[in-house]
Design a protein around this nucleic acid. Sequence first.
DNA 1: GCCAAGAGCGTGACCGGTCACACTTGGATC
DNA 2: GATCCAAGTGTGACCGGTCACGCTCTTGGC
Lengths: 351, 351
Amino acid sequence: MNMTGHTRRPASIRDVASAAGVSYQTVSRVINDHPRVKPSTRERVLAAIDELGFRRNATALALASGRTRAVTVLTGNTTHYGYASILQGVEEAARAASYAVGIGVLESADETTVAAEVQRAADAGDGLIVIAYDPAGVRALNAVPTGRPGAPALPVVGVVETPATPPGGDRPWVWTDDREAAYEATRHLLSLGHETVHYVAIPSSTRRTSARTSGWRRALREAGAPEPRPLQGSWGPAGGHTAGRRLAKDPSVTAILCGNDDLALGVLRALHENGRAVPDEVSVAGFDDAPHAAYLTPSLTTVRLDFTGLGRAAFALLHRVLEQSAPIAPHPVSAPQLVVRESSGPPPATT
Amino acid sequence: MNMTGHTRRPASIRDVASAAGVSYQTVSRVINDHPRVKPSTRERVLAAIDELGFRRNATALALASGRTRAVTVLTGNTTHYGYASILQGVEEAARAASYAVGIGVLESADETTVAAEVQRAADAGDGLIVIAYDPAGVRALNAVPTGRPGAPALPVVGVVETPATPPGGDRPWVWTDDREAAYEATRHLLSLGHETVHYVAIPSSTRRTSARTSGWRRALREAGAPEPRPLQGSWGPAGGHTAGRRLAKDPSVTAILCGNDDLALGVLRALHENGRAVPDEVSVAGFDDAPHAAYLTPSLTTVRLDFTGLGRAAFALLHRVLEQSAPIAPHPVSAPQLVVRESSGPPPATT
DNA sequence: GCCAAGAGCGTGACCGGTCACACTTGGATC
DNA sequence: GATCCAAGTGTGACCGGTCACGCTCTTGGC
């Protein structure tokens, strides 16, 4: 549609203005839907916009308005199912609100590296969403400039494990109730008749025990069951495999809860290698309900967590901080849901 | 360190300038490492920068320089292992080059929706990386404004399936040689003695046959093996399960190649449900070497693809387009590698 | 002692939008 | 016919950097 055919730079509002025979301010009014513009003028301006293929320059808008309409997600990893789903949820909600989403990966939990990443994120967008399930994420969350007099605070939302005590209003956090989820899963296994349930933990985000661990422990305590030491796993199947090998050799172990489905996969494998049948000899339950959980052999009993809902909620919360007009909590996070499949069953008959 | 304690806005170069008793231009020279600044002056400016906690405003820099130092990754999904790994690779390389990474999810393959997403991405950064393994991605790649006279071209790199013919220089694409990979995997299965190999395909990105399909077909042809129709799967295990159920019922099927590891998982499950032993009765091979492949029971023979390397290469290519000074192809993508595990073996002895 | 060169630094305009304000109309009111 | 108001439009400054240029002051060669 361009008649001159020689335009190099994209059209600005001043180009549109001269094409339509008005001032740049009138063009600004048109693209911002200000009411005080004569309909006929608006028509001419819109025609010029169309003809020149004008698009509002996001950078200039950001400079003038002081807001970039972009948020950054800081995460330790993009490939883990839970992390990736949260990211997807954030992006979905952000897109609906016309926000751009940036991403930063915390490759190391090293203090200065993390601080540098946070700084980079800070001047890339208006706000930050930090996935703080692991040490790197927690460190990042703590490194975010809080509202000290000199430097203005950077709006931030943390996606965290269930906190031990409800955080104050100055701690905008979102979480799924994974303590309750662990409790439910453990109770499920106990109700099948197992004497106790062993636990293979995901790496704790802090030194304190994680929410999942404490939910598991509470269920054991309530049932008066023995409390074995939780085994420390990593995030991936390899960690589960290592832990599983140890557990497989202990004949008293009949039920294992795993911090996530990948760990459970490794545990299943280790049990298989050691000739222990699931669920006939040992029951296994996971966490997350990753897409492959239903298709494993045996299919995995697990607790489904609403990660994308969590991501949407994180964005909604941040959005509300960034714009007072944003709706309040429009994206509820659905509660964890126990999904019973083949990998859990009653313990073997005691001989 | 802020003495006034009342600063609202972050410090600008003019604030630094007056604090150091120089002009804003001198401050600009210091932060850009221009040589013509007296060392003593530089000291004073640096001290002021430190004291005020000055950080260069990325938005203003972008407006003045015309370049945002940001790239956007457009993808159909963030949770699939391959996609997520590519994203991680892009982010890694971008971070090393001090570029920000934005992400856009193509929720639908609908023409206008995709075009809108591309537009959004276009004015969010300097360039685009499109993961074009699926119809939405391919459509996005085609919707990117090419260098027509009116609108300037938007630099874009496509992460694509192995193209049938090497693309011209105006098509900056990266890929792993998945045709060759499929060929190798098929040959592996044939070499074990299978009469032929069935194929469960990932959704084709175009109407034409995918590279993986054609590599598989070539291997069959070379061996003079019968060429069964490929089965159309989806991306996830569910599609593999559906396809697997059909294949399980055909006693002549002894070897199955799957377009990715998730499909293979579904196939394994379907075979198990139908009482067909792997690998004793049927051999299965996957694609990607996702983290769980090694821990399945049986562990999965697959072809490892260097997705993060691919992501790094995509960024490197885009970087070279954006900055002539960027190094040439510093991130080689390693070749696909066959990983033989338990799920493949010789066919059952013919009775 | 004069002039050219270059080191060191400052001023003005600009990138493409926005905001605050002032200006010109036309119609209604008195 | 003068006054007021509101609709409709335009001008200037600004956001926080950059670039292009110009100015001043040494320094060195002749």
